[in-house]
């Protein structure tokens, strides 16, 4: 008898834990493709990962309306640079945001055009300046046109 009573208590506790588990664990939880080691998860979270909003739309999206600028860029030395790298993510432009924030800062240009020791990278093939001596403090765009950059030419 004195064994049976604590045994019933233990069984009841286990039953309670299992009952709570039914409600606490998401329905999609289970062992999937990767087995217990790599595939033990809630499958519905895959959908959550897919539902993130796409913000960078790509240059094809911009071309639809801004035909003139995009054709100008695509025939220039900056053809490989996406519009959104300087103009910011389009998201749902023109509805939201109605106006994009254009980064005209010197630092943006220096990402590629600051002269650095980079012997084994494509950086050495890009024309670079010494930012401390080449018109410090002046925005590059005040002399150079980022949409059709001719070397050393003013707008």
């Amino acid at each position: 008898m004195h064994v049976l009573r604590p045994l019933l208590v233990v069984i009841a506790l286990v039953a309670i834990v299992l009952a709570i588990r039914i409600f606490a664990v998401p329905v999609g939880f289970g062992v999937y493709d990767g087995g217990y080691i790599y595939g033990w998860y809630d499958q519905s979270s895959e959908e959550a990962a897919k539902s993130v909003e796409v913000k960078y739309q790509g240059r094809e999206y911009c071309q639809g309306c801004h035909t003139e600028q995009s054709s100008k860029v695509s025939s220039s030395l900056h053809a490989n640079i996406q519009c959104e790298n300087c103009h910011g993510p389009a998201i749902k432009h023109p509805s939201e945001p109605p106006k994009l924030t254009i980064d005209t800062s010197r630092d943006l240009c220096l990402r590629c055009h600051a002269d650095l020791p980079a012997s084994l990278s494509g950086r050495s093939a890009i024309k670079g300046i010494d930012p401390d001596n080449h018109n410090p403090g002046v925005n590059c765009a005040s002399c150079h046109n980022p949409h059709s950059p001719a070397p050393g030419a003013a707008k």
Partner: peptide
């Protein structure tokens, strides 16, 4: 292709903005 990378960091900027 790490020989093509010029260290502009535009990928990192885009990643952080895209993923909020």
């Amino acid at each position: 292709d790490s020989t093509k990378c010029v260290g502009c960091g535009l990928c990192v900027k885009a990643c952080k903005l895209e993923n909020g």
